[in-house]
Nucleic acid binder design. Structure first.
Lengths: 339, 339
DNA sequence: TTGAAAGCGCTACCAG
DNA sequence: CTGGTAGCGCTTTCAA
């Protein structure tokens, strides 16, 4: 009872024309006479024909899918960007293929390797990632368009889209200093990630610059913080609060992501401390939620819609011109209640 | 300077065997003698060959990609489920193709139509959605395996995975009654979505059952609430608070999603009211964040990891047996501080 | 403009 | 077990 797949050949036969004509009609590569066109359309309707995208791109070496490799889909930061990207892709008839590597570099390399079996000319967007230069070069050599997103590493013949991460940290430190905080701590995730490392380094620089002492000792980082951030930062902060006198902890905190900040806030709240009274907190990302929690979170906004849009534009331009480009997007500090 | 794509033919030539042998070696369909195997592997390494997935599935009519159609990626509910699914898919060498339809039924149909050009035998997972029966039937007719997720609509020859939405609402109403709330309101999104409608209907039933009067008047629903939930529920609640005396509003609220609940909480907070003192709130979903906000949100948990896993199992079973199945997953109420 | 024919890179089948 | 060969469904020459 299984209906046989309708092919272009059948359509051609039904319409009494050649497959070439049907193909031309479908793609508009060459114009087709009105009568034939009508017959073909009729056949398509009658037979309920849909072109096979696979066969099409096999032959035409031109795939309409964008591959996205991301740490995971559990972080709104990525999903917002990808959403925006998908939006543009959709309008242009592209589809988006997503995979996650859960912050494992081994796994990332594996996925990258898998991508090697996709059509040349496909676009590949890689979020963060590390220790992957070799695999990336493989892809580039296979003529894929790779775009490095939200990371600093530079690989030859790839494009990149990033947020500015130096100046914004300086501004954050200055803001906290101006608000009167005498000590500032940095709560940071896994520093193998380039942009987090950048924020860490800039933090130390800025602290020196603004006259704080021993900034190195104010950096709190932990591998656990890159996974299940909410829970682990909560646990970490809770531990800090239980094992230190309040006076010995920084009065203000910069968290390298809003998730971290929110987890910390929970721990601080539970201990009976107030924000921003006892501790000031600023985050990074400006998640949708960050303006709705209590107190509302001060954070460095990274415009994700813009990022997604930029990504799409780079994809398109690379297809057209084959040229790579490096783009740096600004961050903006959103001052709310938490510091 | 562009490197020509390495094909199976070249590998065969280089290794001094036939393409068939290389294919057999690669797929393990038929065993290959050790010497030949070694030669082939050598050739693969030397030439840096990667099989073309497209050509492979064109020929074998067996695609290893799962298509997911979701309202969007901005809701952690979906992304958590998809994350879990991706995890299983990844382990089995499948890839996941995601598109969003932004809650537009027209757009959903369009995407569904596009999916028609994918390989027969592919799996398609559709989250929510409505007015799409015709397109779904088309896909089924083309021998695709379609799985309806988180929706009640039944279409012949499709599988489905859902949460139980009737009993859980009864339990919620009972919980609030037992906590002493005299009036309960329901804050609900767009009711074209089957599961939301189900919650609404169950709410009215449950309210009657537990002796509340005029439950129909306690239903607050608005189309705006399905998009940008956080902001729009905040705005809606703010409006309600400004245009009604506190005594005239329900003392307890059931929101059909945590996002809605969080937006409402913000509005209540801003007005200077306390939770759960002045208003009790319960949500639906149990987002990661819901246990970390202030006050911690009581909510009906829908185990998203389990949902994703179930989805994957259904995909696999459909591929193996071709049989469809209907699965209903339980919800669990997580009692925290907000009521 | 149109039809015929030659593949895209791979798997499946067949004979040996 | 192996090599040869016929396609999967489509696009793209190329002549007509």
């Amino acid at each position: 009872m299984t209906k046989k797949k309708v092919t272009i050949t059948q359509v051609a036969k039904y319409a009494g024309v050649s497959v070439g004509t049907v193909s031309n009609y479908l793609n508009g590569t060459v114009s087709v006479s009105p009568e034939k066109a009508e017959k073909v359309q009729q056949a398509i309707n009658d037979l309920d024909y849909t072109p096979d995208a696979l066969a099409s791109s096999l032959r035409s070496k031109n795939s309409k899918t964008i591959y996205v490799l991301t740490p995971n889909l559990r972080n709104a930061f990525y999903t917002n960007i990808i959403s925006a990207l998908m939006e543009y892709a959709y309008k242009a008839g592209y589809s988006v293929n997503i995979s996650g590597y859960e912050y494992s570099d081994e796994r990332e390399r594996k996925q990258l390797r898998l991508l090697g079996s996709c059509k040349q000319g496909s676009s590949v967007i890689i979020f963060n990632g590390y220790n992957d230069e070799t695999e990336i070069r493989r892809l580039v050599k296979k003529d894929m368009h790779v775009i490095l997103a939200d990371r600093q590493t530079f690989v030859k013949n790839t494009s990149s889209v990033n947020y500015e991460n130096h100046q914004v940290v300086f501004e954050l430190v200055r803001l906290l200093k101006e608000k009167g905080y005498q000590t500032i701590g940095l709560m940071a995730e896994l520093t193998e990630l380039e942009n987090i490392r950048k924020r860490r380094d800039s933090f130390i620089e800025a602290m020196h610059y603004y006259g704080f002492k021993n900034p190195e000792e104010c950096v709190f980082e932990d591998k656990s913080l890159s996974l299940d951030k909410l829970r682990n930062s909560y646990l970490y902060m809770k531990w800090l609060l239980e094992h230190n006198k309040k006076e010995n902890l920084p009065k203000a905190w910069i968290a390298t992501s809003d998730y971290l900040a929110i987890g910390m806030m929970r721990a601080i709240n539970e201990k009976g401390y107030s924000i921003p009274g006892d501790f000031g907190i600023v985050g990074f990302d400006n998640l949708d939620l960050s303006g709705y929690i209590n107190p509302r979170l001060t954070t460095a906004e990274q415009d994700q819609e813009l990022f997604g849009k930029t990504l799409w534009e780079v994809v398109k331009r690379m297809k057209q011109t084959g040229k790579t480009e490096q783009i740096v997007l600004p961050q903006k500090i959103i001052i709310r209640e938490s510091c």
